[in-house]
Amino acid sequence: MKKYLLLTWMRLRKNFVEHKLIMTFYCAGTIICNRIFVEVFSSVPDLYEQYLEQRTSWAAELLLLKLLEATLIYAICFCGCAYLYKCVFDLNREQNVILSMLGASKRKVITICLLETSILTISGNLLADLSAVFFYRLDILAYIVILVSVVLLSALTTLPFFIPYIRKPILDSYRNFRDLE
């Protein structure tokens, strides 16, 4: 594990030095995605309570609309993040191919990639949400709730990033990668 972290750290540092723009976009993109998601969803509990109290079709419609809106926004963010992730993946493609040639199994390469994106997304989101905590002067319980939701949301937004890896076995791209040269 220590060595994965070492490799991930080296890679993160290099990527930040060499590709500032993409990496900044990536971090900013995931943070914005999470913020929007939280903002949109924050009114759902109220709407649900309203529905429980009134039991009117109007309240139900409102709740449904809100959920639809949140889903739509999440879907858009999902695509945006997946695209940004593809950019990060492309930065690492050469390295991934070389690593698998040197004896990293698919699982190990994926672990390194996931570590990298998780560190990026989780740390970015933690920063964003912690600043919200200070900004709104929340109490400790709200703080804990936010922390938990940050981890959950980070996991959710990291999810789309699995997809390119699962679809694209690393060694299969070996030849195509070499032939591009």
């Binding site: 070389i98 040197l102 004896g103 199994s105 699982r107 070499r178």
Partner: peptide, 22 residues
Amino acid sequence: DGKAAKLRNQRIGFVLQDYSLL
């Protein structure tokens, strides 16, 4: 895949025309 990777790692060394270094 895991076993093949391990063999590649411990039993085989590659040297290519374009070096394939980082």
